[in-house]
Nucleic acid binder design. Structure first.
Lengths: 348, 348
DNA sequence: TTGTACGCGTTATCAA
DNA sequence: TTGATAACGCGTACAA
């Protein structure tokens, strides 16, 4: 068992050809006579050689076929969100033709020795969201000259971004509610910062996560004084908890709730049901994302529909372009407003 | 911009030391005088050198710090399941101290050029589940001499497995139902094969996915004739669809449903509510996994509690051991039966 | 404590 | 169509 694995030189020797010829047989970059190919292949089988060592190839080629995806939170949390899942799917799909796969990296980890954007053999890095710890990753990455793409976050100039019209889209939903006559409106936000605690938002500047702030701004363009309840993140349970707070006092409850994600909206609806409030008769609820929420039927959310898979694909395309030496432009995606059955006229 | 990136030799030259000394400054493997270190660091800053190139290091060291995770389905689908998410978290956590990260690979992809277990610079591979396409990956991996660990699947001897007592655990739940007097029991299964179509199970041998078959066997140990409805996978919506089928005919509906996952169980419960059946008064439902189901409250499932994070950690530990040259043993995890409020006595 | 020399396994280039 | 050569950038015995 201590026998060294065969290398391409071994195969070449066994086949009676030069290493470069053997290499070409495997890469197919140059025509090779059938006879030679045959001999090399046989030699490979004999020696149990299964193809070039990817490590050596990546040193030689200067490409590892690995795209780092820097996520801020645990995988469990991150992938709870259907938007993130779909985005990752789109990204994976878009980088696959490059022969690249996705390496999951955490921007911040307590674990000693954990892999980082610097220690891993990356061809490029994709940053999702943009928070303080993420900006660190960013700095080291750009010093390395590593191609970087940022999804929904600002990374300064020169870094292509994949953006969403969060503010404008959210404003559309708010105006929809206003047109239905709603005045007492509450906002349920996504996570505001790396701090996981929720609660009533005191100051807009407490929000360090771009998406959250942008959607908040959009809602407040229409309802400047709407109170905002911050959650720990996009999940039904977080929405449920927020909803319970909102509906606790029957006298002061909002007639409409703007949730910053469909999952949160689903939770708010569940809280409304608990409080014996009918949706949309007693309370209207809007979501954001337009993703299928597992188990939300029969409700169909009034929401902003985005295309997370396309966002992922766009990020992948940007990566591909940068690997080609181009400097891709940023891309702005637009949401579509979809009216479902969770919003209706305000009760008089 | 065409200037080559600085290498450690450049830094050494700039600092007036030899490359090996500069190398040692970065690796810390050998003591270096403070003066020298200082000079090297300054030279590095001057040249914009950010540390050793991971590609070259991985060739030299024979380790890339990358563990491949081979998944059978789309990321969106795979990470829909909380069990998988938690497992991945445990796995990531366990390999991080090795300086390793997780590279997502698909066992089967239509995309030309997609990265594979062979083309990626892996230190080890973890296979999740075990289906026909996965067995292919397996064969090539073991020929490479790549350390492999399989989670819930059989990969032949020599391959450490992380197993769950699916059959015994499921039998426990079935016996619980029998003790409550249930006779008309239906089973709602996980996906049966790479084929996504669902429907009534005709033949046990149609199931090529181990987990599904094992849990089925466990249920049938107690209820040999229980009909089984196959779904396309673990989700609330799939459970809802299955439940609708089961409860369609009021005269022939089961008094208890054994769902092979908590998500499916949640869907079945929702279907029961739709059909105006009370849980557990009119129909009992058991799940499997014991994970928090987002939005299932106030129900607390009667279920088999497993520890997916620990399973992931165990897989990571096995990987670590194999990288040390050891041959770790397989690990069998055991479920705990937890009685919730979704099972009760059969109606007479 | 520092430097020399070599090899890790490939593949691109160019000449034959 | 094939072969010789030279990197790719680093880490580490070993010698000094």
């Amino acid at each position: 068992m201590t026998t060294r694995r065969a290398t391409i030189s071994d195969v070449a020797r066994e086949a009676g050809v030069s290493p470069s010829t053997a290499s070409v047989v495997f890469s197919g970059k140059t025509p090779v006579s059938d006879a030679t190919r045959q001999r090399v292949m046989e030699a490979a089988t004999t020696l149990g050689y299964t193809g070039p060592d990817p490590r050596a190839a990546s040193l030689r080629l200067g490409r590892s076929g690995i795209v780092g995806v820097v996520v801020g939170s645990s995988l469990n949390y991150m992938f709870l969100d259907p938007v993130q899942r779909l985005m990752m799917d789109g990204l994976a799909e878009a980088v696959a033709p490059l022969g690249a796969g996705l390496l999951l990296l955490r921007s911040h980890s307590d674990i000693e020795n954990a892999p980082t954007i610097t220690s891993a053999p990356l061809d490029a890095a994709v940053l999702i969201g943009c928070d303080a710890p993420l900006r660190d990753s960013l700095e080291t990455a750009r010093q390395r000259g590593l191609p970087i793409v940022v999804i929904e976050g600002d990374a300064g100039p020169d870094v292509p971004q994949i953006l969403l019209d969060n503010r404008e889209a959210q404003r559309t939903a708010a105006e929809h509610l206003r047109s239905l006559g709603h005045e007492r409106v509450a906002i349920v936000t996504l996570r505001a910062s790396s701090d996981l605690r929720g609660g009533w938002l005191r100051d807009r500047s407490d929000i360090t996560i771009d998406v959250t702030r942008e959607r908040l701004d959009g809602a407040r363009d229409t309802y400047p004084d709407a109170p905002a309840l911050v959650t720990a993140g996009s999940s039904i349970d977080q929405g449920l908890a927020a909803g319970r707070v909102l509906f606790a006092d029957p006298g002061r409850r909002p007639t409409a709730v703007i949730a910053q994600s469909d999952l949160l909206a689903a939770g708010v609806i569940r809280a409304a049901e608990e409080a014996d409030l009918r949706v949309p008769e007693d309370v209207s609820v809007t979501g954001f994302d337009g993703v299928p929420v597992d188990g939300l039927a029969p409700y169909e959310l009034t929401t902003l529909v985005q295309a997370p898979t396309d966002k992922g694909r766009a990020a992948g395309a940007a990566v591909a372009a940068m690997l080609e030496g181009d400097q891709p432009a940023s891309v702005l995606f637009t949401c579509t407003f979809r009216v479902g059955n969770t919003t209706g006229p305000a009760q008089v």
